[in-house]
Design a binder for these strands. Structure first.
Lengths: 157, 157
DNA sequence: GCCCAGTTACTCGGATACCACTTGTCCGAGTCACCGTGG
DNA sequence: CCACGGTGACTCGGACAAGTGGTATCCGAGTAACTGGGC
């Protein structure tokens, strides 16, 4: 899986902690975790295309959350970064070569693909059931000072 | 996801349909679906290392199933081909740069990683619950002639 | 006829290139803030 | 003092390279079957 997913998740949480009142540039978000600025910018663009964050150009511009964390799921972020394609894409090799399935088995979906899709659906269901607000709650319980440290750093930057 | 997974799954099913009495070479398995022989051989080697199939060299050699399909799950095959690593590997970026989580939040696992791992566990659970025998049953119901066609082709090859 | 050793051909197995995609970087279009000027 | 136009700098956004892992291939080590000869 693309590692940009982790960057995007933490960036969303950071944006929420900073507050929705002001936009944050990709450079500052990147600096906070020592990430390559331009590449994180690329991921944030993907989030913007997905409607998870909004981007404003010009001075005092940057990114901010498009909606509260309660309405953003892990699935949203993963889909925004990874794309909508399924991980297991059936190439239908059973239809190639002499082994092409006979007796009207072509139209019906491949039994393997079906089971893999079912498993992937369970994965997506879990991701869709977990909002970033849930994660924020757990993170604040574990590292109580993280939020304040972050706000202080972004104000003094 | 690696496309070799699909090849391995179909090859296992084909081996089961052919019968356990004789070994089948990678070349014939590949020819049946018009796949590159050497590369499929590589995937079969991975299955052999995982103990899913056994390989015998020399004339009349080849691959055969190490155990019946009832005891082979989708998870086994996926792990054999893809490796045991999780798809989402947390790089712990929260510990980098000025944003390193303070107040003893380091030892506890990342909340994001935890949720992602939970979702992935659901995926693995589904894969582990589905045996290749289940898939075979469904495939035979959809394409009743597939098994006989396959056996005929492999006998006349 | 039976046994055995040598040869042979066939198999897997790992070492070796090729290619696509992820990762990483750069510069330009657009935009808002700021500043100086005029009323 | 206030309004306004011009300038400037800062932002995102997409186009452009580099590195890594998946994809594909080849050749060698090893083995079991086959063949021919000897008993």
């Amino acid at each position: 899986m693309n590692e940009g997913v982790e960057w995007a998740l933490h960036s969303c949480l950071n944006l929420a902690w900073i507050g929705e009142d002001r936009a944050v540039t990709a450079a500052r978000l990147a600096a906070y975790h020592a990430l390559p600025t331009a590449y994180l910018n690329k991921q944030l663009q993907a989030l913007a295309r997905a409607g998870i964050v909004t981007s404003t150009p010009g001075p005092k511009g940057g990114f901010r959350l498009a909606r509260p964390l309660e309405r953003i799921t892990l699935m949203d972020v993963v889909t925004a970064i990874e794309g909508p394609d399924e991980a297991f894409r059936c190439a239908e090799i059973r239809k190639q070569g002499p082994g092409e399935t006979p007796h009207t088995g072509h139209e019906l979906p491949c039994a393997f693909a079906e089971s893999m899709a079912k498993a992937e659906l369970a994965w997506r269901r879990e991701l869709a059931a977990c909002t970033l607000a849930d994660v924020r709650k757990r993170a604040e319980k574990r590292a109580p000072g993280a939020r304040d440290t972050l706000r202080r750093w972004f104000e003094n930057s």
